[in-house]
């Protein structure tokens, strides 16, 4: 089977876009690459395959800063083309630096943190009331968990028994200005979310097999409890000089760092291959 949504290919697209647009937030996108790959490859039911297909499952990127990872998946789906990637941040183009629902394929406008999960909760509630069987997956950053509105949404989802909602926390341990435990300690998110009424599980957010199993297992439980997957990730995963280097939250690629990053991803791809279902 062809390896669609190959993480190495997705990271190459992210680098290509980031270099073309001279953008920041590369590392925010790198931490969720495997999460998105597994979701798009094995879990999201996309209906007729068009971005706004009736009856599709919803993927809500509440941490809008990682949007380049989603653009990379949308390229694989044929929803974006090579020109879109090459002209990233060009004047008059529509792909912004944060998730924007005006772009077909992106469900929410996020980036102002603490919005997306609530909107996703509303979509899950709507799907439940319609009995449509649609699921909503919402990806929230751990830094974003500082926002009070996120916890309002969590309370609400549990109270209204939204078992068609899967909250995926990208726990990369960093936020804009430093490590989450230095800025606002979040504690044990699996325990916290369990206490809030979610079926919660912690996984390695770069292990596609474990992510896949976690999603499959939680999706099977129609028990009136929303699901949470706390994905332990590495900010900047895939390029050694970016990994856990929070300065890369705001650093742009140079010609040299772009070449070095690409070389590293290509080399890893040649030696490891990539897991596929």
């Amino acid at each position: 089977m062809s390896n669609r949504f190959d993480p190495a290919a997705l990271r190459r697209t992210i680098l290509e876009m980031a270099f073309a647009g001279s953008t920041v937030h590369i590392v925010c996108a790198f931490s969720i690459v495997e999460i998105l790959a597994v979701l798009y490859r094995n879990h999201l039911r996309l209906g007729d395959g068009t971005p706004r297909a009736e009856g599709r499952d919803y993927l809500v990127l509440s941490k809008g800063h990682g949007v380049m990872a989603q653009y990379a998946c949308m390229r694989e789906l044929g929803w974006l083309n090579d020109n879109d990637i090459r002209n990233y941040f060009g004047n008059g183009t529509i792909l912004k630096g944060l998730s924007d629902a005006h772009v077909p394929g992106l469900e929410v406008t996020s980036g102002s943190l603490g919005h997306g999960l609530s909107v996703g909760v509303g979509m899950a509630l709507g799907a439940k009331r319609k009995g449509s069987g649609q699921r909503c997956y919402a990806i929230v950053g751990d830094g974003e968990m500082n926002e009070g509105a996120v916890w309002e949404a969590i309370l609400f989802a549990a109270h209204f028994k939204l078992d068609n909602l899967t909250l995926i926390v990208d726990e990369n341990g960093f936020q804009a200005m430093g490590a989450t435990h230095d800025i606002l300690e979040l504690g044990d998110l699996v325990q916290k979310l369990t206490a809030f009424g979610f079926d919660s599980i912690g996984v390695d957010g770069h292990d596609e097999l474990r992510l896949d199993h976690a999603l499959t297992r939680t999706n099977e439980l129609s028990n009136g409890r929303p699901k949470a997957i706390v994905a332990k990730t590495i900010k900047g995963k895939g390029v050694s000089f970016m990994e856990n280097k929070n300065s890369w939250h705001y650093t742009r690629l140079t010609k040299e760092s772009y070449a070095d990053a690409l070389a590293e991803i290509n080399a890893a791809r040649a030696t490891n291959g990539a897991w596929s279902s």
């Binding site: 469900e107 603490g114 919005h115 999960l117 609530s118 909107v119 996703g120 909760v121 509303g122 979509m123 899950a124 509630l125 709507g126 799907a127 009331r129 319609k130 009070g148 509105a149 309002e152 949404a153 309370l155 609400f156 109270h159 209204f160």
Partner: peptide, 23 residues
Amino acid sequence: YLNAGVAEQNMVGVAAGLAKVGF
């Protein structure tokens, strides 16, 4: 009828989500 609790920010977000899916 739905009482969203003393959580207005989430309530408006939920309303937006509901509107997106046809409510």
